[in-house]
């Protein structure tokens, strides 16, 4: 039995197979409509995340399966003081697979050590968000036709943005990826990613503050939101939240083939004015998120569809 805690849990070859499966689901959704008939997905969301939870639920429903779960710690037995280990032992009796989001880092890993069913990390604090990374990889591969041989700009909250950390860890396994890390000084990439991931693996990267300086060089721009919930201090959040706003003027600096991604939800960092720009790919990304979660559920449940 396998779990998914980090995007690195899959080898590059396994990831290729997973993304191939997701593309096949995209092309032939009817073929998979009953693949998980009789199976149940438990969504254990200890903190609110409508988007990720609904994406998982849509994925399981598209496969003909059922879903159960909770969407906040208040409505779970965690409010009564139950440990993650006990909760997963109980849920293992109810469902065939589970997706867990938890504000505490490492909670899904704890669950995986006690679980009798596959556990998917659906986001743990500021640590990992592997299914967003799978979504990002599928979107990039589908829209650019390749993984690797491009320059990607990662912009915004690079300090607390777990999607960025996970994406960098996944992309360093592909050839010739140049990273441009765009952030205010206070939200720079943490040293474990800069030193242990980028430098140790001899990756090309540079850190800049101005988005305008990076835009002309980018094949991909990955925007992120400054997340209020990651700040202990409201004053710091207010100061940082509108540091970057991608609008029509800035998009003029970008190449015609550059695509803009965002894990969503956005607040102010992408102006709605560019939603109809063909380079804006963040809503397509949401759709790819469902396909890749369908592929992941099939893979972890070891369901084969001929």
């Amino acid at each position: 039995m396998r779990h998914l805690m980090s995007p690195l849990d899959f080898s590059v070859e396994e990831l290729d197979r997973l993304l191939d499966l997701a593309n096949d689901i995209e092309a032939n959704p009817e073929k998979y409509a009953h693949a998980c008939s009789g199976r149940k997905l438990a969504t254990l969301f200890y903190e609110p995340s409508t988007r990720t939870r609904l994406s998982f639920e849509a994925a399981m429903l598209n496969l003909g399966g059922s879903v159960l779960g909770f969407s906040s710690a208040d409505s779970s037995s965690a409010a009564k003081g139950e440990s993650v280990s006990d909760t997963i032992r109980v849920i293992s009796c109810y469902a065939d697979i589970c997706a867990m989001r938890h504000p505490k880092e490492g909670a899904p890993l704890v669950a995986s050590t006690k679980s009798r069913i596959p556990v998917i990390n659906a986001g743990d604090g500021g640590h990992q968000h592997p299914t967003q990374t799978l979504t990002d990889l599928l979107t990039i591969r589908s829209l650019k036709g390749r993984l690797g041989k491009f320059t990607i700009g990662l912009c915004g909250d690079l300090k607390f943005g777990r999607t960025v950390h996970s994406l960098i860890q996944a992309l360093i396994r592909y050839p010739d990826v140049n990273f441009i890390l765009i952030s205010p000084e206070e939200l720079r990439i943490p040293d474990n990613i800069r030193e242990d991931v980028l430098r140790r693996n001899h990756q090309n990267f540079k850190e800049v503050v101005r988005l305008e300086d990076a835009l002309p060089d980018l094949d991909l721009l990955y925007m992120t939101r400054v997340q209020k919930e990651r700040f202990f201090n409201e004053e710091d959040y207010v100061r940082m939240k509108d540091f970057y706003i991608l609008d029509r003027e800035k998009m003029k600096l970008a190449g015609p083939d550059m695509i803009v991604l965002h894990p969503l939800p956005r607040v102010n960092e992408i102006s709605v004015d560019i939603d109809d720009d063909p380079r804006a790919a963040y809503f397509k990304q949401v759709q790819y998120g469902v396909y890749v979660r369908m592929a992941l559920i099939l893979t972890l449940l070891e369901v084969k569809v001929c």
């Binding site: 993650v84 938890h102 505490k104 880092e105 490492g106 909670a107 704890v110 242990d196």
Partner: peptide, 19 residues
């Protein structure tokens, strides 16, 4: 790390690996 699961579930072993 105040965000670590070990900060609220104290019965967990504190495990560190040599990185």
């Amino acid at each position: 790390n105040p965000r670590c699961i070990t900060s609220i579930e104290q019965e967990l072993d504190q495990i560190f690996f040599l990185a």
